[in-house]
């Protein structure tokens, strides 16, 4: 039986943090974005460099996973060719929601310098892309920046991502 009237809102009332579900969930998601190692070409080397000693991706909570089932983001690093296009779609479909895609490098963005018969002219023809990184190949710092922007984007989103319309092109 409460004998006193407690002012919960006042400082030092109770050890309670008030937040919204959206914020809590997305805070968790944004700080543990596990990436699918989707190394296709040259950019994959820079992606590995971003994960290695000097650039150390782990401090962002990003660990490279080899399985699409465990991954939250797909870093499409390199040229997507027409022969491979089918597989990127398959692996994207296998990833669990919520999922995001970073298109790394000019080739993944637009086909880049490879304006040829064998190259898909932009990975966004196949899967929806959230962030495009320019550069050929982008430096690891660029990937870090992109990841931080993605974290910022995730934090702003609603936790129920399924409600959000996704567009392909």
């Amino acid at each position: 039986m409460a004998q006193h009237k407690v002012n919960y809102a006042a400082e030092g009332g109770l050890p309670v943090v008030l937040t919204t579900v959206d914020k809590l969930v997305q805070w968790g998601r944004s700080n543990s974005v596990w990436a699918l190692t989707y190394g296709l070409a040259c950019c994959a080397i820079e992606m590995m460099a971003a994960g290695a000693s000097r650039y150390d991706f782990d401090r962002f909570g990003t660990i490279f996973r080899a399985s699409p089932r465990q991954a939250d983001i797909m870093v499409v690093a390199g040229t997507l060719t027409k022969k491979h296009a089918e597989f990127i779609r398959r692996l994207y479909d296998q990833m669990a929601e919520p999922k995001w895609v970073i298109s790394m490098g000019s080739c993944a963005n637009t086909g880049g310098m490879f304006n040829t018969y064998a190259t898909v002219q932009g990975v966004d023809r196949i899967i929806p892309v959230d962030i495009y990184l320019p550069g050929c190949a982008p430096r690891p710092e660029t990937l870090q920046f992109a990841l931080m922007m993605l974290q910022k984007q995730i934090r702003r989103e609603s936790a129920f991502r399924a409600l959000k319309p996704k567009r392909l092109v």
């Binding site: 296009a85 304006n115 040829t116 018969y117």
Partner: peptide, 18 residues
């Protein structure tokens, strides 16, 4: 006789397939 950017089948290859 094959253009660098490919013929029609090549240009729509991935869309047709997927």
């Amino acid at each position: 006789d094959y253009p660098m950017i490919g013929d029609e089948a090549a240009q729509w290859y991935e869309v047709d397939k997927i």
